[in-house]
Simulated scan of single mutants.
Amino acid sequence: MTPETTGGPAPADPLEPWPQTVRWQRVSSDLIWVELIRLAIGVAVLVVGLALGWAFSGHWLFGLGLGLVALLTGWRVVTIVRAVHAWGYAERDDDLLVRHGLLVRRLSIVPYSRMQFVDVTAGPLERAFDLATVQLHTAAAASDARVPGLPPAEAARLRDRLTALGEDRAEGL
């Protein structure tokens, strides 16, 4: 007998890690600009090094390296845009779900009762775009999760809510 014939719900697809029964919150698309600027800084350093090597030695491998950097940079720009759109989080009654990833999809489920503390950080680039990152810490480092690209007000609200729910759930242990 299949679930369809018994009237029960169809089983979840194990290859589809994003549960459709929750309301996913997306991160800000301004995170794309933050990540692109970080990429540009790294690529600029690499290009300057390769260009100087090519100028002083004249060896064709430096030119090939520049071409590869350009090709890989274009590929990385596309993946950054898609990766930012893959980030999401959902608040449920007992836990927080955080999803991200393109090739390897990752779904982190962090029970409120397991949270030890919650960080809100914002580096210089994030502050320039009015963004912050919420980092959740648990006893097991592998179960830590982060939600980047949130407006500071949403990051503070999420931090306060997670902290309050964590304290409430921990009292019951």
Rank of each mutant, 00 (worst) to 15 (best):
119 D>P: 02
63 G>N: 01
132 A>E: 01
68 L>S: 10
101 G>T: 03
169 R>S: 06
29 S>D: 14
72 L>N: 05
92 R>G: 08
52 L>M: 09
75 W>Y: 14
103 L>T: 14
170 A>G: 04
70 A>G: 04
19 P>Y: 02
114 R>W: 01
156 A>K: 13
14 P>C: 07
111 P>R: 01
144 D>S: 12
140 A>P: 00
62 F>M: 01
108 S>D: 14
13 D>E: 07
64 L>K: 00
151 P>N: 13
28 S>F: 07
167 E>I: 14
107 L>E: 07
137 H>A: 05
72 L>Y: 13
82 R>T: 03
143 S>L: 14
50 L>C: 03
37 I>T: 04
110 V>T: 07
37 I>M: 01
20 Q>P: 07
146 R>P: 00
9 P>D: 15
163 T>H: 06
11 P>L: 03
1 M>W: 13
73 T>G: 00
164 A>H: 06
149 G>R: 03
16 E>A: 14
15 L>S: 12
3 P>Q: 08
97 L>Y: 15
164 A>W: 02
161 R>P: 10
45 V>E: 05
164 A>P: 04
150 L>C: 03
131 L>Y: 12
13 D>W: 02
65 G>A: 12
62 F>P: 00
39 L>E: 08
104 V>E: 08
20 Q>I: 08
6 T>S: 11
38 R>D: 06
158 L>K: 02
60 W>I: 00
97 L>N: 13
74 G>K: 02
72 L>T: 09
107 L>T: 05
77 V>F: 06
171 E>L: 05
14 P>W: 04
136 L>H: 07
36 L>F: 05
139 A>P: 00
145 A>E: 12
173 L>W: 13
10 A>N: 02
117 F>N: 12
127 R>K: 09
72 L>D: 08
50 L>W: 00
